[in-house]
Amino acid sequence: MSNLVRESALQQWLSKTLDIVSPELTMISGDASFRRYFRFQLSNGDTAIAVDAPPSTEKNQQFVDIANALSAQALPVPKVLAANIDAGFLCVEDLGSTMLEQVLSADTASELYRQALALIVQLQATKREDLAEMEEFDQAFIQRELDIFADWFVEAELQAGEGWQQRCDWQGLCNNVSQAILEQPYAPMHRDFHSRNLMLNQQQMVMIDFQDMVWGPIAYDVVSLLRDCYIAWPPELVSHLQQTYLNQKSAYLVEGIEPSTWQRWFDLTGLQRHIKALGIFCRLDHRDGKTAYREAIPQTLEYVLQVTKRYPELQAFHQWISPIAKEFKA
């Protein structure tokens, strides 16, 4: 079904469901998925967001279930006003147009990230049984994500051919990051917690794009936020903010976390995420024709270089990827 046909069907559904005569839809954005977002006016004059989320590719039921569960736990998420799961149409609360990314600066970063980290702590304090059913970020899940790098960055983008796994000790890297992830305490994990998935609405920070939430390691959302693929900060600020998180988190921990243990968790969990992200950025280009995400590849590679340089057991991977990273900076 073409975009125009789906847009017309979305308009008709909104008109019937919300008793609005032919609401005028103004596209506000698409994203890395196949979803499209439109703003329109309700009968009372307020605005809302209509979402075209094709059911063949999007997790619409999960989005609705998780949104309702998070809202019930007083976590800030957009309210779902109406949903047609079979058609892939949603109507959600309008949170405005201000993403965290747009208001971050050297002057505002420390306070805004403190608020975002407090939101992670609040999310992680939620009991599993109080949330919608979610997958576990287990060994198989971790490896599936790492394989995205192998399939799309190494093979589709680099066309590296056979033997690259041995040259970079790919299996050793997979084993090391998996071990660091699996030994952590597990909690609700947003899985894409960064500056483009947090909105500021009337001074409150609100989570969006949470339909892929899983039960996973506590460091994941923290490193997603602080080593964001789209915006980078000085190491001193990142270290300070990590400590801010640990200070907030300490009240919920049975035992303290040794600084060296935490740093390894943070680094290697981030490495897994950034390696996956490199594969996703290339997949978005090669498969979906979305080239804009290539702009994030150099910064993401820089994070990979920083972490692999720091750990002796990752030197083979560091030496293999270093010349590759230079080509993306050119």
Rank of each mutant, 00 (worst) to 15 (best):
Q159E: 14
Q159N: 13
A160E: 07
G161Y: 01
E162C: 04
E162A: 15
E162L: 07
G163P: 02
G163E: 05
W164I: 12
W164T: 11
W164E: 09
Q166I: 15
Q166V: 15
D169M: 07
W170T: 15
Q171L: 11
G172D: 07
L173H: 03
C174W: 00
C174Y: 00
N175E: 15
N176I: 14
N176F: 10
V177I: 10
A180D: 03
A180V: 06
I181W: 01
I181S: 05
I181E: 03
L182K: 00
L182S: 03
Q184F: 03
Q184C: 07
P185C: 10
Y186W: 05
Y186I: 12
Y186S: 14
A187D: 04
P188E: 07
P188M: 05
P188Y: 02
P188A: 10
M189P: 02
H190Q: 06
H190P: 04
H190W: 05
R191A: 13
R191V: 12
R191N: 08
D192R: 01
D192W: 00
F193Y: 14
F193C: 07
S195I: 10
S195Q: 05
R196Q: 10
L198P: 00
L200P: 01
L200Q: 08
N201H: 11
N201D: 10
Q202G: 07
Q204D: 09
Q204G: 04
I208K: 00
I208H: 00
F210T: 09
D212M: 03
V214C: 05
V214K: 01
W215M: 08
W215N: 08
G216H: 00
P217W: 04
I218L: 11
A219Y: 01
A219W: 01
A219Q: 04
A219S: 13
Y220D: 11
D221N: 05
D221S: 07
D221C: 06
D221R: 01
V222H: 01
V223C: 04
L225Y: 00
L225D: 05
L226Y: 02
R227H: 10
R227D: 14
D228H: 03
Y230V: 14
Y230E: 10
W233S: 12
W233G: 11
P234S: 11
P235W: 07
E236N: 04
L237Q: 11
V238P: 03
V238R: 08
V238T: 15
S239W: 09
L241V: 08
L241I: 09
Y245M: 06
Y245R: 03
L246F: 03
L246V: 07
N247D: 15
Q248V: 11
Q248A: 14
Q248E: 14
S250I: 11
S250Y: 00
S250N: 09
L253N: 09
E255R: 04
E255K: 06
E255Q: 12
G256N: 13
G256Q: 13
G256L: 09
I257E: 06
I257W: 01
E258D: 15
P259D: 12
P259A: 13
S260V: 15
S260N: 14
S260F: 07
S260K: 12
S260C: 13
T261A: 10
T261W: 01
W262I: 09
W262G: 09
Q263H: 10
Q263N: 14
Q263S: 13
R264F: 07
W265P: 02
